[in-house]
Write a protein that binds this DNA or RNA. Structure first.
Lengths: 226, 226
DNA sequence: TACGATGTTGACGCGCTGTCAGGATTTCGC
DNA sequence: GCGAAATCCTGACAGCGCGTCAACATCGTA
C-alpha cells in the first residue's frame, strides 16, 4: 500500500491536481506517490535512527514504521546508509544558507564572521531536527561520522571564505588546509560537548572558538614567517 | 581447536612452563590457551577491520581467520564492537606514555609541550599498527568514532596537563573544557587529513597546531577578561 | 588413573538482507 | 472511455550472520 492512499482520508489533494507549476512535474499521481513514499521513508528513518541509533536500526525497522512493504524500500534507497546520508545531506542543505548569511552580515569583519558562523553552527546543532543531533546525544561509545559529498562541499565553501579573509588580513603563511581543518575540528568537538551538556553557554562557546581561531591564526602567521 | 595447539609447531613454550613470574599466573595450560585465543581473536580482528572496515566485518569474518569455532568467540567478547574497543584501548595505552614523555621533556615550556604532544600524536597515528589508522584511511563516507573510557581518561589526563599550564601562564579566563575540546578537535581533524594524504608534513602540522593553540589561548584570555 | 571443572565445538532457531515473479495501479494512445 | 503497456508495489524466498546451548574434549587435581 502506498502512503498516498493511506493518507487519502486526511489531507491530500486528490480532486484536481492538474495544472501545477510551469516546470514542475508533480501532477501525475505516480510522481506524487513516489515523492510521498520517499518522504515517508525518510521521516520514519529519522525517527528510528533517533530511537535505536545508527547501528541499532535495520531497514526493516524503518519500513515497518511505514505502510509500505519491505521490498518497496529498495525502490528508493539501497540501504539504511543511503537513508542516513540523505537525512544528513538535508541537514547540510539547511545549514548552508546560515553560513552564507553569516558571511554576508559580517562584511569584511573576520571576527564577526567567525562568531556568527560558530554560533550559527552551534544553534543549528542544538535546535535543528537533524539526525546527527539525536544520534550524537545518545550515550553510545561507538558513534558514526559522515563525510558525504555535501559535507565536503560545505567544508570547501568554508575554506573559500577563510582563504578570502586570510588573504585580506595577509595571513599568507597560514596554510588554509590546516586552518580549515582546525576550525572544523574545534566546531565538531565543542559542538559535541554542547550536545552532551558538558558545555552550556552557546554564545560563550562561539566567542571562545572565534577568538581562538583569530588568535591562533595570527600567532601561526608570526611564528611561521620567522 | 585452540590456537595453542595449532601453533605448537612454531614457537610456543610447551615443555616446562611451570615456575613463572612471582605474581604471574600464566603457568597453567588453560591460562595459556586463553591468552593465546584472546590474542588470536584480537589479531584477526585487527586484520579484518583493516580489510573490510568496521561496518563490513562480521564476527564470523573474525573467527574464520582463526582456528577457533564460532561459539568460542563469545567466550572472549560479546560482539565485534567489544573487539574493536579492546584494539582501540590498546592503541590508547600505547599512546599514553608518549604523551607523558612529552610533558616530561617539556618541563615548564608550554610551547614545547604542545609541539611535542601534537607531533607524538601525529606520528603515532601514521605509524602505530592501530585499528584506527587503517580504518580512517579507508575511503568510506561513513566512519566510526569511539569514545571508550580509555579515550576519555586520556582526554582527562590531557586536560589536567592543560589546566596546569593554563594556571602557570595565568590563563584564568580560558575555560579548560573548551580549550581541551579545541585541542582534541584540532588534533583529530588534522590527523585525519594526514592519514588521507591531504597534508604531508607532520612536523609542520604539529608546529601549526601548537602555535595555533598558544595564540588562540592568549587571545581568548585577553578578549574574555575585557 | 579417575573425576570434576573448565573451555570448545558446531548445529540450531531467529531475524535481517536483497531479490524477483506476480499482481495492482497508473499512463498513454486511440 | 478503453485496452495495452509501463510502472511500481508486494510479500515470499534463499542466503547469511547472530547468539545460544547441549554434547564433547581437555585440563587440573588427588
Amino acid at each position: 500500500m502506498q502512503v498516498l492512499r493511506a493518507m487519502k482520508s486526511t489531507s491530500v489533494s486528490t480532486e484536481k491536481d492538474r495544472a501545477d507549476g510551469p516546470e514542475g512535474n508533480q501532477s501525475g499521481k505516480r510522481e506524487q506517490t513516489k515523492l510521498a513514499n520517499r518522504a515517508a521513508i525518510l521521516e520514519a528513518g529519522r525517527q528510528i535512527f533517533a530511537e535505536l541509533g545508527y547501528e541499532g536500526t535495520t531497514v526493516r525497522d524503518i519500513i515497518r514504521r511505514t505502510e509500505l512493504a519491505s521490498g518497496t524500500f529498495y525502490n528508493y534507497f539501497k540501504s539504511k546508509e543511503e537513508v542516513f546520508h540523505a537525512l544528513h545531506d538535508d541537514g547540510v542543505a539547511r545549514f548552508k544558507p546560515l553560513l552564507r548569511a553569516a558571511r554576508q552580515s559580517a562584511g569584511q569583519d573576520f571576527q564577526a564572521f567567525m562568531i556568527t558562523a560558530f554560533e550559527a553552527y552551534f544553534n543549528f546543532l542544538l535546535n535543528d531536527q537533524s539526525v546527527d543531533r539525536e544520534m550524537a546525544a545518545m550515550p553510545e561509545w561507538t558513534r558514526v561520522r559522515f563525510d558525504t559529498p555535501e559535507s565536503l562541499a560545505l567544508f570547501d565553501e568554508l575554506k573559500d571564505d577563510i582563504v578570502a579573509f586570510a588573504t585580506e588580513f595577509q595571513l599568507d603563511h597560514v596554510d588554509p588546509e590546516l586552518l580549515t581543518a582546525s576550525c572544523v575540528g574545534i566546531a565538531q568537538e565543542i559542538g559535541d560537548r554542547l550536545l552532551r551538556g558538558r558545555i552550556k553557554d552557546i554564545h560563550a562557546a562561539a566567542r571562545f572558538a572565534a577568538y581562538f581561531v583569530l588568535g591562533g591564526s595570527q600567532r601561526v602567521q608570526s611564528e611561521m614567517q620567522a
